Simulated assay, not measured.
Amino acid sequence: MYPRHAHQIVLSALDEQAAVVLLGPRQVGKTTLALDIAGTRPSVYLDLEREADRRILAEPDLYLDEQAGKLVILDEVQQMPGLFASLRGQIDMRRRRGFRTGQFLLLGSASHVLLQQSAESLAGRVRYEEMPPLLLDEVGKDRLHDLWLRGGFPDSFQAASNRASQTWREDFLRTYLERDIPALGPRIPATTLRRFWTMLAHAQGGLLNAAALAEGLGVSGQTIGRYLDLLVDLMLVRRLAPWHQNAGKRLVKSPKVYVRDSGLVHALLGLGTLESLLGHPVVGGSWEGFCLEALIAAAPPGTEPFFYRTSGGAELDLILRLPSGAVWAIEIKRTTAPKVSRGFHLAAEDIAATHRVLVYAGTRDVPVANGLRALPLGDALGLLRAAHDAGAGSLPA
């Protein structure tokens, strides 16, 4: 077991809100975290993928009335969409009886469906949190290359060997394609969706080119959009929006697309060792996506991520606009040289960045010209955690 940042986040949310929705892809550790929390207080746990547990909630109010005062944990809650209306009444009833916080912990792996259902029924009664795969500052900086190669799904990361890890990820992909996605309703051939997912991995971190993807798969651009929406909804792919506030600039308006877990990128491309990864053209995009996901996860809640690119060549791999108003301009490079192009500084000026950071493959914290600071990934995560804890978004010295 590794200590997860999400553990304290969920505990704090339960102390402040009646219901907490914890979102994350399957096998990311949500159930383990929930059962750990259940061990600290009176709780009941139901897995709504089990027919027996769904039958318990055939008359939800009858059962839930008896659990007042306990934390009710409902796993894969999107399996019973009709339950949300009952939860609203249960929360209101419990409030009248003096149980105002920490009543329900809802776990889900399909964000759009779950958010839509809960937003309609539980407005003002629920807090949303996302649980990412394992992060570098959870497993230790000495495991950087293992985490990058294998990805952050706990069973993949902790496998006995790289081969065992790759086998786990192959099984994970197959299960999603053959069981989990069809269970959500879309009738998409598994082989077609696997090809689409693999095409995204080959283009890791590139601009979305729906026309090229459609041509490669022999489908329409509208169908490509539907496939992409599905993988984004399952929190397996990130669609990173372009920065859009410089109206006077000729900005790139297409989003960038990343397969969110680096281990899945490598499994889709058949890269089972660090040597094979380092010799593959995707190495730069894979490193960028790996760092980008870690940085976004470490940022304070409410942070908005973007990228920036102009037709003139000014570019930023990642912009983090923190709730404090601070704007972090971040370049990600798999290099040991703490240098950036002139286009980085032009872009940082365009967006009025308050902080300039280069995340690189070196081992030292190096101050560079024009306010730029070059940092290893672990140190950059530490700065973002500090900004989170301080609540101000400032960059510590």
Rank of each mutant, 00 (worst) to 15 (best):
T40Y: 04
G29A: 02
H202F: 04
Q67F: 08
T192C: 00
P396I: 12
G39N: 10
H5P: 02
R373W: 11
D261R: 13
A390C: 05
R4H: 09
P338R: 15
T101D: 13
V265R: 02
L271R: 06
S286A: 13
S220N: 06
K70F: 07
F307N: 01
G69H: 12
L46K: 03
M131A: 03
T354L: 06
V44Q: 05
A392V: 10
L14T: 00
D155A: 13
G302M: 08
R385E: 10
R95A: 09
L234M: 13
S156I: 01
R239T: 08
Y45I: 04
R150K: 11
I330R: 09
I181D: 00
Q67R: 13
A13L: 06
E178Y: 01
L135Y: 12
T310N: 04
A347C: 09
S111F: 12
A159H: 02
D47I: 10
L14E: 00
G312F: 07
R97F: 12
P186T: 06
L277V: 08
G89Y: 07
L228T: 06
T31V: 03
V219E: 05
L320T: 02
Q204V: 00
V10L: 03
A58L: 10
I319Y: 01
F153D: 00
L372N: 06
L375Q: 10
M199T: 03
Q103T: 00
V77E: 10
H388D: 05
Q117M: 08
T223K: 09
G205Q: 00
V282A: 05
G108K: 01
R163G: 11
Y176I: 08
A160K: 10
R143W: 03
W328N: 00
A247Y: 15
T198L: 02
G39C: 08
A211T: 14
A58D: 07
G216P: 04
L57E: 09
L236Q: 14
G312E: 12
L177R: 08
G312T: 12
Y308M: 08
G216I: 05
V44Y: 05
V21M: 12
F84A: 10
L114D: 03
V252F: 15
L64A: 01
V357C: 13
H112F: 11
I296K: 12
P132S: 15
L23W: 07
A369L: 12
M93H: 09
K253D: 04
L11E: 05
L107Y: 14
F307E: 09
G302F: 06
A85C: 01
E59T: 08
V282E: 03
A34D: 06
A380E: 05
L115R: 14
G221T: 06
L295T: 05
P323V: 14
P255R: 06
A386G: 07
A386P: 05
G272S: 14
A348F: 04
T303K: 01
G284E: 04
D47V: 11
M1A: 10
A211V: 14
L71Q: 15
Y227K: 13
E288K: 00
L236M: 15
